[in-house]
Simulated assay, not measured.
Amino acid sequence: MKFKLKALTATLFLGSSLLGANAMAQLPQNATAIEMPAQSIQLTQEWDKIFPKSDKVEHRKVTFKNRYGITLVGDLYVPKGATGKLPAIAVSGPFGAVKEQTSGIYAQHLAERGFVTVAFDGSYTGESSGTPRNVPSPEINTEDFSAAVDFLGSLDNVNRDEVGILGICGWGGFALNAAISDPRIKAVAVSTMYDMTRVAANGYEIKMEANPKGPYERAPAQSADARYKAKLDMSNARWEASKDGYADLLPANNLDPKKDFTAETPKFIKEYANFYRTERGYHPRSVNSNPEHSWTVTGMLPLINMPILKYASELKAPALVVHGEFAHSRYFGEDAYKALGSKNKELYIVPGANHTDLYDDVNGKIPYDKFEQFFKANLK
């Protein structure tokens, strides 16, 4: 097997080298080089988070690249006065949010408890680079977590053998996927998680009730015909989108909690709007907050067709799955927990909490003690 692998590598290398040489030989003498303009990144220096700055941590903006060459921007939090090499945690999410919102809240709290943390914006969103803007990708967003691990492991005050990750909402699925693919990740926790590829392919597998009295009831997944129609519509939209570099955006989220709610509006939609579209959680760089932002028209295509968590049973790292008792998304966490192969895993249900209760500290539902205990027990 070792010989075959070396032979395959040599063949691929030789083939690509010859291809490159032949291609260069065939270039016409009047070939024109095309210069691609570089994307400039403007970093906000003032504190513009939705939460107050802690006096227990040191904070600074950082940048690092993923293996696709996209520059990611993060907020690094370090326990004030800490010495020696510390355990570290990379944090991101929710899907469509920015580091100035939920992930920053988690990162700062965990830094207060002794961890070096980085809350980062995923590729194509927030202050991170990547064009066109607001593009989701199951592969690249999984890679973003591994790139954050690369960054943390390069710091002098971090023990690279004690690095974990934490994903929130849609980035919970990407965090689990990253931990499955990257064995350097020593522990993974998720909070109020979604599997974005599952919801893109199947729709919401719950009854869309306006006011459920208890946990949401399950409902059948979207049919293959409905999935085909969605892919057909997005694929046909590529003709026009390609003329503008695939930058065309879907209609923006402009649901106004003060005037747009009706008796038929599903409860969890109201919960989202009451976070992202009010002073509680609004941030202008968030796809979910800004009525002028949205995802690209063709952005959900790979989420439908390229499921993550296929190898969940092969996860070896310790895993903590935290979800709210009354969260519409609870089934994502419960099903992921069942599928994970980790011998050390726990499902923790927060009593009385809905999905967005675990986004911030307004309702006091985020179980920081649980996250601290999990990471301190497993990052060592």
Results as ranks from 00 to 15, higher is better:
Gly81Val: 07
Thr9Lys: 14
Leu309Gly: 05
Phe115Gly: 02
Leu255Ser: 00
Ala210Val: 01
Lys213Gly: 14
Lys343Asn: 13
Val116Leu: 07
Val199Phe: 09
Phe51Lys: 03
Gly245Met: 00
Pro52Asn: 11
Gly15Ser: 10
Val190Cys: 06
Ala175Asn: 04
Pro132Ser: 03
Lys376Arg: 13
Cys169Thr: 06
Gly364Arg: 06
Asn354Leu: 05
Asp335Gln: 06
Gly299His: 00
Ala336Asp: 12
Pro257Gly: 03
Val158Ile: 02
Val297Trp: 00
Pro132Gly: 07
Lys380Gly: 14
Gln26Trp: 07
Asn363Glu: 15
Ser313Glu: 14
Pro212Asp: 01
Trp239Pro: 06
Thr63Arg: 13
Arg280Ala: 04
Arg280Ile: 01
Gly93Arg: 07
Phe151Ile: 07
Ser286Val: 00
Thr131Ser: 10
His293Pro: 01
Ala210Phe: 04
Gly93Met: 07
Ala82Gly: 09
Leu320His: 09
Lys99Pro: 10
Met208Tyr: 06
Ala119Ile: 02
Glu209Asp: 09
Glu264Ile: 01
Tyr246Thr: 02
Lys80Thr: 07
Ser40Glu: 13
Ala147Asn: 08
Trp239Tyr: 15
Tyr348Trp: 11
Asn378Tyr: 12
Phe64Ser: 08
Leu12Met: 15
Leu347Thr: 08
Lys213Cys: 00
Ala111Thr: 12
Asn236Arg: 13
Val321Arg: 02
Ala377Trp: 12
Ser40Gln: 15
Met1Gln: 12
Phe375Leu: 11
Leu155Arg: 14
Ile50Ala: 01
Asn22Ser: 15
Gly69Thr: 04
Asn378Arg: 09
Glu334Ile: 08
Lys61Thr: 12
Ile168Ser: 01
Ala319Cys: 09
Leu43Val: 15
Lys85Glu: 10
Ser289Cys: 02
Asn236Asp: 12
Thr298Leu: 02
Tyr77Phe: 15
Asn378Glu: 10
Ala263Tyr: 12
Glu209Tyr: 05
Gln373Lys: 15
Gln108Phe: 01
Asp150Thr: 03
Pro251Tyr: 00
Ser54Phe: 12
Ala38Tyr: 10
Trp47Ile: 10
Lys213Ile: 04
Phe332Thr: 02
Ser92Lys: 06
Gly167Gln: 03
Asp48Trp: 03
Gly130Asp: 01
Glu279Lys: 14
Gly81Cys: 08
Lys2Leu: 15
Tyr246Leu: 09
Gln45Gly: 08
